[in-house]
Design a protein around this nucleic acid. Structure first.
Lengths: 144, 144
DNA sequence: TGAAAACAGTTACAAATGTAACTAATATCA
DNA sequence: TGATATTAGTTACATTTGTAACTGTTTTCA
């Protein structure tokens, strides 16, 4: 007998979707950013000069999804792209001034959202939760 | 400064996607079921006679997604639909014999997968983790 | 060297998903 | 009662996403 409501994969999926779309509302309404675009901005903001492949790895996104998000962001003037010597296949990515200002507007809101969530847990409980989450991630990686 | 890799919403999303697609492989390969179809089968198997709207609520799915999954499952002979008196708008859903056999083949695999994951945590750690997860879900619901 | 394999990124097509409008049935309440 | 609103489920259209094949470049190694 399986109760979907008690089933861990299902609970994680519902929670994750709810949280993601909660945050997404912020940057969708204010900047018309999709989740993938926001992730690209977050990665490029944190690691200026990364390539699209780096972004895909760090954001656990498909390279096609990254390519599409990057091209939308370039069109919108939110991202810049420069040559990568000596490998001319890859291009280095940077936030434009506008991309930077979007980044700097979203990051505090995202962190505040995260803090609000984690404030539902006691400090010790929070540490334990994050550690357990890490163990689960390892177990999932081993298993899949 | 925001490190996507440490950001809770992102970590939850990656973990949830990894786990979901890990399980999905099982029923995709063996039965050609999508995630939504599997969820419908799980709900109808657990609560025979539910309506599509009930399924949507219990599975946190969009009613259009449910409608489409149900119609595919009906076409494949995996689901049956009977009249619901006295309200003739809604139809009651049941697993067919084939649907039941698919359900009974997947459920143990799904539960084993969940157990493998949770076995990465000590018994006490696991209880705490699940409790924290519940608190987070409440906080997210409040916040979103 | 130079032929073959691997890689970065893009494009094209198919499948999945979200949104809005729709049909048919039931509920509401003046 | 009967006009209006609500509900269950479907359909149609637009958008998003995944898969495979592609271009141009670099690496590998016989």
């Amino acid at each position: 007998m399986l109760d979907l409501e008690d089933f861990l994969p299902y609970r994680l999926s519902v929670l994750s979707n709810r949280i993601s779309s909660g945050i997404a509302r912020t940057y969708e309404e204010r900047f018309g950013l999709s989740v993938t675009e926001w992730r690209v901005i977050a990665i490029v903001g944190r690691y200026p000069g990364v390539t699209a492949t780096d972004v895909a790895e760090r954001a656990a996104m498909d390279k096609v999804a990254v390519s599409r998000a990057v091209s939308r962001l370039l069109d919108a003037g939110r991202l810049e792209r420069r040559e990568n010597h000596p490998d001319r296949r890859a291009k280095r990515l940077y936030l434009s001034a506008e991309g930077k200002s979007i980044h700097d507007a979203i990051v505090p809101a995202a962190l505040a959202f995260e803090r609000d969530l984690l404030d539902a847990l006691e400090p010790e409980e929070r540490r334990r939760f994050l550690r357990s989450l890490e163990r689960l991630a390892e177990a999932a990686e081993r298993h899949c």
